[in-house]
Design a protein around this nucleic acid. Structure first.
Length: 958
RNA sequence: GCUCUGGUGGUGGAAUGGUAGACACGAGGGACUUAAAAUCCCUUGCCCGCAAGGGCGUGUGGGUUCAAGUCCCACCCGGAGUACCA
């Protein structure tokens, strides 16, 4: 019987569905294992062959774990909110819910055809109110909690209120937007509005005027990870910095825990590094530099505000952050960012005009311009001076946009000798450069001869007062000690990580369960969730620039009744306006893995029982492109839920595998420049300058040979095409590029399933190479894999119950061992090779024994579930192969009587020799001396040394 | 610039310090067939040689080791992340 995959694959897919084979229970005596894929955004284009790569890998592992006796959770769902559906809605008027539903249906069909073991009863969709109820709920918890640095966890805002009423800010160390200092008496005297303003300073989800990435092209703000090179990732529109009132999540409160947690997870080093860089922890010192009052009569009384709380001296000062406190003796100027509040107050009248012009210019520059012109040095002197607290030198204060408002305090001490940016600035404006670090002790050179600064944190301090002669590290510690002693600064840590902007001026996202009373945001009661997305007449922003929800006519909150009402009822007494922004894409994807544990629970996010059983995700498979987005937000989300006692593990994803991107492999034809109707086969082109390469659809190319007829029919202008052929064939050129429609190199998995079957596609995607590695898609090898399955199938043609031969059993047990090891280390490409080798050998041995073939059917089941299930049933079983047991390999089957030893002379392999497995070094040497090969290479000489590695190798040193 | 990756035949890749190129694709030759498909067999890193055999080979140059694609140092090239983060 032929291998009829077209018949058997749908048949078993139906069987699995009808028998609920992949249904997973939360109650089981079996050990648990949770395998998760990053859920897809259902785009209109459908799946291409790159998407399933990770799904196939995780499916293999999930099925394998199941066969090894685990209760395996392997769910799938859809990250269904997103911009493309909304952009499409704006263009066509089609409701995003409709297109999303349609795309999901298509995705599901495509996924089903590949035979995955997903438990679809657990499907979640982020746009489903039953799901986003819990996204909103989590937001409300964030709103109702603050981060206590002393306890190092999130605590209820109510506790903070109680604390304020009793002690004010006394003894409080909490994550906040701005450090506040007030007494209990002050707090108790303030009214509700003031209370709410103060609390907002501490909430983990807070509303604030913050500089945001405003993308006019998309009409919304974007998170930092959604902007690359000043352009939006989606759409490529310019992005500018703008001050807007936005919801943010105080993820920075968790910065240290996000860094620390990376130690506990099994992720690739590169991904951990991406996250570490993104969080950007740097240790250093905060130092207060006093302004020079004597030389600067223009200091305003208001400058007092910049005084540190602990500073005993009544001198106006400002705070800087430095990672190199050891270089404080080399400070020759100070720089403030253009946004710095101090600028207005300290600028001298002579400099005022120049400074104002500069600040205006700098603020109006787009983010893109600023980034593009990083090398261009610009800045202006304020006329004011600071005093170096250790040297008491007068130091000029400049303004420049190379100092960023968003990092540290927006002010720096410039040490041009040891910071390349300061160096460039000093050279440009002719400011002094003073060496304070030297690679060798007491050796200094003339910085005016330098071509670049010496930034390395190695060497010794020079010209540096009391730290001169110390190693850099010692000097850092000594300077900080001194600063702390003087009360003018302290050791501190800064993070590059910014709070996550959580508002989007979009329609197709989760509404905020927030309404406004007196312009103060209030949470709607948790019992009223979900707050469902309203209908709108248009998906665009309103004429007055409000987000799309501004079009909704029924979008007001009745506080008394606890329901949504018509906007016309807004009286600001009982009925109030609701928030018009929606949540960003990462909201719904930040906790979905927890929801899968208990996806239909209506009274809780997930039950205590479910999370106690499943704990966290054991294996997460997805793209590394989520390193600075989803994977940071989800870890933050999980840590917050952990603080609430809901998540049971602090890290959500124990082990993570990045599937490499599948690149496209484009094909080209070459049109002659001198004869427009002539196409020259690749091998016949003498000079590439004589031809124009043109992308051709990879679907009309087979092994780089062009289908001439299809090419002529492809486009009218090619109908009369003539060809210069090599051996009757037109050979196309090829190149690895991004997989995209415009390059005609998109491969749709359905076509391949149709031609070869799902099992072939699954095996082939694995066979391409290591899962983590990026690789070009190329169907050239798929035939070989398909041939293998046919050959594998033929092994089962004449099954007999006779015992298998010793050789056959050895082959099978070798295969069991190798495949098991390979799966454990996620080396699926080599497993496929192993199956091929096994099949070739069993075919040669003409092995038709059940004893050998039954375990093999189980072994291949994770990879090629359909064929395995079919053969399993043909072998006489009447339950699914996935309830079978994973075969155990028997080491005694692999014991060899003789070993083929490679024999090396001086490390070079010369010949092999068969020796008894138990041979000793002396016996081996004897045998070699006796053999003709051995005599030839020894040539009578006595070995100086012999290395004998039993069962591996013999190396003779002459 | 910094960080992380990777560099092995015509192609995808294998080799967890121990026979480099497994397994496949492609290519060449052959069997079966009226023919095609399907299937099967042989050859296939490069160089010298009729052969036996030998030399050279994992980006480059050094090093460690009895033994290096694998470990160490320096450099070159590709890919990704990040980018004035003090």
């Amino acid at each position: 019987m032929d291998y009829d995959f077209r018949n058997l694959e749908p048949r078993w897919q139906n069987y699995w569905r009808e028998h609920g084979v992949y249904h997973v229970s939360n109650e089981s005596d079996r050990p648990h294992y949770y395998v998760l894929d990053m859920f897809p955004y259902p785009s209109g284009a459908g799946l291409h062959v790159g998407h399933p790569l990770g799904y196939i890998a995780s499916d293999i592992y999930a099925r394998y774990k199941r066969l090894r006796g685990y209760n395996v959770l392997h769910p799938m769902g859809y990250d269904a909110y997103g911009l493309p559906a909304e952009q499409y809605a704006i263009q066509t008027g089609q409701h995003p819910a409709v297109t999303t539903e349609r795309n999901i249906t298509r995705y599901r069909e495509q996924l089903d055809k590949l035979g995955f073991s997903f438990d679809w009863d657990r499907e979640v969709r982020t746009c489903d109110p039953k799901y986003y109820k819990w996204t909103q709920w989590t937001f409300l918890q964030l709103f109702k909690h603050y981060y206590d640095n002393t306890e190092n966890k999130a605590l209820p805002i109510a506790e903070l209120e109680a604390r304020f009423a009793k002690n004010g800010t006394e003894g409080l160390d909490a994550a906040c937007t701005e450090a506040l200092d007030f007494s209990a008496a002050e707090w108790n005297a303030w009214d509700e509005t003031k209370h709410q303003q103060v609390l907002m300073n501490y909430r983990l989800a807070y509303l604030a005027d913050i500089p945001v990435n405003w993308c006019a092209g998309l009409g919304t703000v974007l998170a930092n990870d959604e902007v690359v090179n000043g352009l939006s990732v989606r759409g490529g529109y310019p992005v500018e910095r703008k001050l807007m009132r936005q919801w943010s999540l105080r993820i920075t409160a968790y910065a240290q825990r996000l860094v620390d947690g990376l130690e506990k997870v099994e992720w690739t080093d590169s991904l951990k590094e991406i996250q570490r860089n993104w969080i950007g922890r740097s240790e250093g010192a905060a130092v207060w530099f006093p302004l020079d009052m004597k030389s600067n009569a223009n200091v305003l009384p208001g400058a007092q505000a910049y005084m540190p709380q602990f500073d005993p001296q009544p001198v106006p000062s400002f705070e800087i952050f430095t990672t190199r406190p050891d270089t404080i003796f080399g400070v020759t100027f100070m720089v403030l960012c253009p946004e710095h509040e101090l600028i207005d107050e300290i600028t001298t009248p002579e400099q005022r005009q120049q400074v104002q012009d500069y600040v205006t210019w700098a603020k109006n520059r787009s983010e893109r311009e600023r980034q593009a012109e990083v090398k261009k040095v610009s800045g202006v002197f304020t006329g004011a001076y600071a005093v170096n607290p250790l040297t008491e030198e007068r130091i000029p204060i400049w303004v420049s946009d190379y100092v960023l408002a968003g990092y540290g305090t927006g002010a720096i001490m410039a040490v041009p000798a040891h910071d390349s940016r300061d160096f460039a600035f000093a050279r440009h404006f002719g400011l002094p450069i003073r060496q304070v670090v030297s690679l060798e002790k007491d050796v200094v050179s003339d910085p005016s001869t330098w071509t670049e600064s010496m930034d390395a944190k190695t060497g010794y301090s020079v010209n540096s007062g009391f730290v001169t002669g110390m190693k850099v590290k010692e000097a850092m510690a000594a300077v900080i000690d001194k600063i702390e002693e003087l009360g003018i600064g302290h050791r501190t840590v800064n993070y590059r990580l910014r709070d996550a902007i959580f508002s989007r001026q979009r329609y197709w996202g989760e509404p905020f369960p927030i309404y406004y009373k007196n312009n103060i945001p209030y949470a709607i009661g948790e019992e009223h969730l979900p707050l469902e997305l309203p209908e709108v007449s248009e998906f665009k922003p309103t004429a007055s620039g409000e987000p799309p929800l501004g079009h909704a006519t029924k979008w007001a909150w009745n506080e008394e009744k606890g329901c949504v009402e018509e906007n016309s009822k807004i009286d600001n007494q009982k009925v109030f306006p609701l928030e018009l922004s929606t949540m960003p894409g990462f909201a719904g994807s930040s906790g979905y893995y927890l929801r899968y544990m208990d996806p239909t629970n209506d009274s809780r996010y997930f039950s205590e029982q479910a999370v106690t059983y499943w704990q966290n995700v054991d294996l997460y498979v997805g793209g590394a492109e989520h390193g600075t987005g989803h994977l940071i937000y989800a870890r933050f989300w999980n840590k917050f839920l952990f603080d609430l006692g809901m998540a049971k593990k602090e890290e959500p994803f124990q082990k993570l595998i990045n599937q490499g991107m599948i690149q496209g492999r484009s094909n080209f034809v070459y049109r002659s420049k001198s004869d427009n109707g002539l196409f020259i086969s690749k091998g016949l082109i003498k000079n590439m300058d004589d031809v124009t390469p043109i992308h051709v659809d990879i679907n009309m190319v087979d092994n780089d040979v062009l289908d001439l007829e299809r090419f002529r029919q492809w486009r009218p202008e090619f109908a009369e095409a003539r060809f210069e052929l090599e051996e009757g064939k037109y050979i196309c050129g090829w190149e690895v590029e991004k997989m995209s429609k415009s390059m005609f190199n998109v491969q749709n998995p359905d076509d391949l399933v149709e031609r070869y079957g799902a099992d072939t596609l699954r095996l082939y995607e694995m066979f391409l190479g290591p899962v983590e590695q990026a690789k070009p898609w190329d169907t050239n090898g798929i035939e070989g894999v398909h041939r293998f399955l046919k050959k594998f199938w033929r092994l089962y043609d004449n099954i007999g119950s006779e015992p298998a031969s010793k050789e056959a059993l050895k082959v099978v047990h070798q295969t069991i061992k190798k495949v098991t090891d390979d799966i454990e280390r996620f080396s699926f490409n080599t497993s496929v090779s192993t199956f091929m080798i096994c099949t070739n050998q069993l075919t040669d041995l003409k092995c038709g024994s059940r004893e050998a073939l039954v375990p093999l059917a189980v072994l291949i089941a994770p990879f090629a579930p359909h064929i395995a299930e079919e053969l399993w049933h043909q072998l006489g079983h009447d339950t699914t192969v996935f309830d079978a047991e994973w075969p155990q390999y028997d080491p005694s089957m692999l014991i060899e009587d003789t070993v083929k030893y490679p024999v090396q002379f001086n490390g070079k392999m010369r010949f092999t020799i068969d020796l008894p497995a138990a041979a000793t070094q002396a016996e081996a040497l004897e045998a070699i001396k006796a053999s003709p090969d051995g005599q030839r290479w020894l040539a009578g000489a006595e070995p100086k040394k012999v290395i004998f590695v039993p069962k591996k190798i013999i190396n003779i040193v002459l």
